[in-house]
């Protein structure tokens, strides 16, 4: 399986959850050990079950506790904000590819125009209702995501074959580079424009038979 950035984000999230889970589990087990006096039996320094859970040392009751609350709170809030920021998906989508660059100027191609051309070519294949295209990466190693909406009767392997033998060679010739990665999502249940999707109701069929 390929390793995109999305999967790396998933790994980091699992690590965060595992860390919080282990800390919470340790706290829950410590609670059980204190309440049932297991910790003392094992020779650990543990409070009595009848003492308060939150016991602030006398020396902390002044400004020390306030500073701990303030500092700890700021650190916790910053960690929380960092986690939240990491959940916002970052698009690596690219708007243009630089075809060439020299003293006389720079030639760029808009990926929107390329996407329109590719989508048009894919949409013209038999059984395809619509296609959407997005480009990523750089011209050195362009990447493309393609969403193809097909009708249920479409010959999907044939569409993929035409994509490989007709559409992609045209695109790669235009870019002057081979695609580094191609992602295709096939969606089913669409109707190709211009094709009839009308199915007469059984009652309608009977009525027309009677009229004959």
């Amino acid at each position: 399986m390929s390793s995109g950035r999305m999967s790396r984000g998933g790994g980091a999230n699992r690590a965060r959850l595992a860390v919080v889970g282990v800390i919470a589990l340790a706290a829950a087990l410590w609670f059980i050990a204190v309440c049932f006096r297991l910790a003392r039996r094992w020779g650990l320094r543990a409070p009595e079950p009848s003492t308060p859970v939150v016991s602030v040392p006398q020396s902390w009751s002044g400004s020390v506790l306030s500073w701990i609350l303030l500092g700890g709170g700021v650190v916790l809030a910053l960690i929380g904000l960092w986690w939240l920021a990491r959940q916002v998906p970052r698009s690596q989508r690219i708007r243009r590819y630089g075809i060439s660059s020299d003293d006389s100027g720079r030639v760029e191609v808009s990926t929107e125009a390329l996407a329109g051309a590719v989508a048009g070519e894919v949409s013209s294949l038999a059984g395809v209702a619509e296609a959407r295209v997005r480009f990523f990466g750089a011209l050195a190693e362009p990447e493309m995501l393609l969403q193809i909406d097909v009708e249920d009767r479409a010959d999907i392997p044939r569409i993929l074959e035409l994509l490989e033998t007709e559409v992609l060679p045209d695109l790669q010739r235009c870019l002057g580079a081979e695609l580094g990665h191609l992602g295709v999502q096939i969606r089913t249940g669409f109707h190709v424009e211009g094709e009839s999707s009308y199915v007469p109701e059984p009652a309608g069929i009977e009525a027309s038979a009677q009229s004959k």
Partner: peptide
């Protein structure tokens, strides 16, 4: 190999519990 475009099929990212 690695790629920058999003993976189309991947296991859940666990974004909801982390959020």
């Amino acid at each position: 190999g690695s790629h920058v475009s999003p993976q189309l099929l991947s296991r859940p990212r666990r974004a909801v519990p982390v959020t």
